[in-house]
């Protein structure tokens, strides 16, 4: 993925969006194909987005942001993996193509969770300028991409809740049947004590 850094520098020096080099086209197509975030965007919109983002590398264990930090940017996982935790508890793991830190940006609030690289990771950091209404069509697509990702994450979280609920019910069943078995035992124990 080191190729991305070379091409990103090309993007920064682009005077107009018309003189995109073939290699840069390659990158754009790759992003559109492999990253759902870009899949609805036209080439010039991808270029516009790339202009608004910079890349950051993290080593395994590096903190990306923490609970309580203010949020002026959000991230897209280009490669690697990011763990999201509240306090000591990990609530999600996000892989290539996922968006990270968008909740605080969308809600215009502080980060309510911490993000840590769980393996060496390359991230695009994207400023909230992408949601500027100066380019409504682009902002619309970017926001829809973010909303879709949120929807996926909520799906996952709901599934987790549903599974936890089922586990709880199973555990309750086990306890109930164990108690059912214990009662006569207790009774006989009591009678012998008497």
């Amino acid at each position: 993925m080191s190729e991305i850094s070379d091409k990103l520098s090309q993007v920064d020096s682009l005077q107009t969006e018309n003189d995109i080099s073939p290699e840069l086209f390659g990158l754009i197509n790759k992003l559109q194909k492999n990253y759902p975030f870009f899949s609805d965007m036209e080439d010039r919109e991808v270029v516009h987005l790339l202009k608004l983002c910079s890349q950051q590398s993290f080593n395994k264990g590096d903190e990306i942001f923490k609970e309580g930090d203010s949020a002026t940017i959000f991230f897209l996982v280009v490669s690697g993996e990011v763990g999201i935790s509240i306090g000591q508890k990990e609530v999600a793991r996000l892989k290539q193509g996922s968006v990270v830190g968008e909740m605080a940006m969308i809600e215009d609030a502080l980060h309510t969770a911490s993000a840590t690289a769980t393996e060496p990771s390359l991230l695009f950091s994207i400023t909230r300028d992408i949601l500027s209404t100066k380019m409504p069509e682009f902002a619309n697509k970017a926001t829809l991409s973010i909303a879709r990702q949120l929807s996926h994450k909520l799906h996952e979280a709901n599934r987790t809740i549903h599974n936890l609920q089922e586990q709880l019910e199973t555990a309750e069943d086990v306890i109930r049947s164990a108690e059912g078995r214990r009662k006569p035992y207790r009774f006989s124990e009591n009678t012998t004590m008497r």
Partner: peptide, 28 residues
């Protein structure tokens, strides 16, 4: 039209974000 789509999408994203945060808290 895009400006309206953008505002609606932003509203939905905001509400989704709140729900996700609450659900994450529930999981935690």
């Amino acid at each position: 039209f895009p400006t309206l789509g953008f505002k609606v999408a932003a509203n939905l994203a905001k509400q989704l974000s709140v729900k996700l945060r609450e659900t994450d808290e529930l999981i935690k």
